[in-house]
Design a protein around this nucleic acid. Structure first.
Lengths: 261, 261
DNA sequence: CGAAATTTTGATCACGTTCAACTTCAGTGG
DNA sequence: CCACTGAAGTTGAACGTGATCAAAATTTCG
């Protein structure tokens, strides 16, 4: 964790802040399981520090060990790999409610890097502490499974995107995916959201060159599917866009309750 | 589960077969956590049926609900999506020790399909029963997280493959990945393994056309990196292959023990 | 305001697709 | 045992998409 401003939370200041209950990660948890106030207390007690990281800083560096889970409160990051031909592939974006450290913290050495795309605030928890919680409250183990499955599903979609969709289809699908994830975290309206990504970022996520992404973006604009001026994206023909990208919203089940409940 | 021969395991025949202890899924579990005989007993008791499925049969059909975990004992399958332009993208392969139902069984409707590539035998367990086990023995919840993370990591590699690697690099990487996964399940030797996939399957996994995959395969052969006659693959220059594919073996940590152990 | 990053546009080129034909191989029945 | 069939592998030629390179226009930010 380089270049980060860390506010260590020592024992005496362990009052649960009201903000925690509205934390996008907490919202995320609630969307997949029943969360009691006791659960939230326990989780909060694991939080070691609150971080504020500036734009364009490395959160995870290829090859480094890093055994933490960081719950993102705000901001965007990208998990990527740099190849020795100089190209970069962004595997996934990390948004409010996501966890930095899935899957990196579970590998002996992270085979990729994570970089912030905007300023980011996150709450850090040691992986071992979280695992300990899983033994005391097994629903957290299942919740972790759900988070990991979510990651796997999203990555699977990106495989389909880069493998077999043409540029326009890819872009449509990615925009819809980002929108639906942001909406889940309460960061998007019906057909509109802020996307603080440069075209270089988008092209590295889609496996395209910057000029071609630019032209593809222009085509979607000209065809009246989206409006994109600056960082704001608006879907002007949602149906056509979903058709083009063959987009199906993510539909994870909820974590089963313990038997007898 | 269509076209499957099912051997239901009724209550009276619930003797744990010796075969279970050598089941590739059990091996897999042992590789990521400490497994007691009691754990194996509990898990076995969840097994509802043993299935034998013929080659080229659908295990999961796009859009269908399917709430089981199937532990693969033998055979290969592919998880894929069919696009409306007629193309197919294989997202991941399913091999001995893997679980059919990750991630499909956790979604309301599976947005992709799974098809067997060879005859396959598997042991089926209802998802709810497994979740129940997670509440009694939390290490199984963590184990599920590990399996899901594994899936996410592999999919991430496939994103990088299809997104930014050229055909030769992709093929090299995929072959090394398959080899290392088979080796983990005891199905491969140092530099040699059986790969019962047609070139169509391989090309749909790599996002290439069949002719081009064929030429790429020929190039690796001509360059002395591999031998590939029929279904047998042999690495004749492992180092060069790893260099070409920029392959790093998967290195998941082990599941932490409960505090105090 | 100046410098740097980002977006946009254009021209050229190469890689990989497409389509088609042909070969080889595996399995089946006569 | 061989002829037949269909699937899989192989090869070639033409085409098109998207990369590459370069430069201009625009925006962002110190």
């Amino acid at each position: 964790m380089l270049y980060a401003e860390t506010a260590a939370l020592n024992g005496s200041s362990r009052v649960i802040p009201a903000r925690w209950y509205g934390h996008p990660f907490v919202t995320r948890l609630k969307s997949c399981m029943d969360v009691t106030p006791g659960d939230l207390d326990c989780l909060w007690r694991l939080i070691e520090a609150e971080l504020t990281v500036k734009k364009r800083r490395d959160l995870v560096v290829d090859g480094y060990e890093y055994r933490k889970l960081c719950f993102v409160e705000d901001g965007f990051a990208a998990r990527y790999k740099l190849l020795h031909n100089g190209k970069r592939q962004i595997v996934n974006f990390i948004m409010p409610g996501d966890v930095v450290g899935i899957p990196g913290s579970f590998q002996e050495t992270a085979p990729y890097s994570v970089i912030t795309v905007t300023d980011m605030t996150l709450h850090m928890c040691p992986l071992d502490a979280y695992a300990g919680l899983c033994y005391r409250r097994p629903q957290f183990g299942l919740a972790l499974s759900w988070l990991a499955l979510y990651e796997a599903i999203i990555c699977g979609e990106h495989v389909i995107n880069t493998g077999r969709r043409n540029p326009a289809e890819r872009l449509a699908h990615l925009l819809l995916e980002i929108h639906s994830r942001l909406a889940m975290a309460g960061r998007a309206s019906q057909a509109c959201f802020d996307l603080p990504f440069s075209q270089e970022i988008m092209s590295d996520a889609l496996g395209l060159s910057v000029p071609h992404l630019n032209r593809t973006l222009a085509r979607l604009r000209d065809d009246g599917l989206i409006k994109a001026d600056g960082r704001r994206i608006e879907f002007t023909d949602l149906e056509a866009l979903e058709m083009l990208g063959q987009f199906q919203p993510l539909n994870l089940t909820r974590v089963p309750l313990p038997p007898g409940y």
